[in-house]
């Protein structure tokens, strides 16, 4: 099977280049990652991240024939030859298919991806009704592979400011959590013009997500919450006035 792979080693190369490989596959080689490991047997200088080999750890995300995806869950039979493999777009390349995810995780961290609850911890767990739990379906499954954010043109052109689909979906995941108490703070956090509102519904994120999630919709729902918050503020303000009058 023929491959064309993006190569760059800062120790040796001034510029990245594409290298062709022709590799003989064996029975049982079904996924792209299997083929990549065969190539690594031939040429151990090819660097890539990988770990669980079953689409759970999110390590081996890369640009496969122009589309971001996980090598371990991409079937070889679905790919046109030569298979063109490049690192995920828009992030600095450390080496070959390995990109520097620092910026991605900084954005992720900036939305405070953890429960904020100021009540004293109860004896047991903080409980949640099955209905409230169901609201997190389609949000919590994210494996942070970065395929969505690095396929988003808004992120390509504004990597410093735009949080990106992965981070924003996690922001919504905690807004939607019945146990979280920091809604106002979370919405305020995203109000700067370029953090949330750079999303133009291009939907590349939904197109590539290996977990079939919909960050685009989550972002739209954050805007809904903004409306609700404004309405509540107004109600509260009214109550304030009424109390004063009383």
């Amino acid at each position: 099977m023929k491959f064309s792979i993006y190569r760059f080693n800062p120790d040796v190369d001034k510029k990245p280049y594409m290298q062709d490989y022709d590799v003989v596959l064996e029975d049982g080689d079904q996924m792209l990652l299997d083929a990549l490991l065969r190539i690594k047997d031939l040429d151990d200088s090819l660097s890539l991240r990988k770990s669980c080999r079953e689409g759970v750890c999110g390590s081996d995300s890369m640009n496969i024939n122009g589309k971001n995806g996980l090598a371990c869950v991409t079937k070889l039979s679905d790919l046109d030859e030569p298979v063109v493999l490049r690192p995920m777009p828009g992030l600095p390349v450390i080496r070959d298919l390995v990109v520097d995810m620092t910026q991605f995780f900084e954005h992720y961290n900036s939305v405070k991806p953890y429960l904020i609850n100021h009540d004293a911890p109860p004896e047991t767990e903080r409980l949640q009704s099955p209905e409230d739990r169901a609201k997190l379906d389609g949000l919590y499954e994210c494996i942070l592979c970065g395929a969505c954010t690095t396929s988003c043109p808004s992120f390509w052109w504004n990597p410093e400011t735009f949080v990106g689909p992965a981070g924003l979906m996690q922001a919504y995941r905690f807004m939607a959590d019945s146990r979280d108490q920091a809604m106002d703070e979370r919405l305020e956090n995203l109000e700067a013009p370029d953090r949330l509102y750079r999303c133009h519904n291009i939907m590349n994120c939904v197109d590539v997500c290996p977990k079939k999630l919909n960050p685009s919709l989550a972002i739209a729902k954050i805007k809904d919450l903004k409306f609700e918050q404004a309405r509540e503020h107004k109600c509260n303000a009214k109550k304030h006035i009424e109390i004063k009058v009383l």
């Binding site: 993006y6 760059f8 800062p10 510029k15 990245p16 640009n63 024939n65 122009g66 589309k67 063109v84 490049r86 690192p87 995920m88 777009p89 828009g90 992030l91 600095p92 390349v93 450390i94 990109v99 520097d100 396929s151 043109p153 390509w156 133009h200 519904n201 291009i202 939907m203 590349n204 197109d207």
Partner: peptide
């Protein structure tokens, strides 16, 4: 070396889905 890291952003190598086409 960290500063001179290249980015893979050659738009001709990245697939343009129909949604992205309508958007651009």
């Amino acid at each position: 070396k960290v500063k001179n890291r290249p980015k893979n952003l050659n738009l001709f190598t990245i697939r343009l889905p129909i949604n992205a086409l309508v958007s651009i």
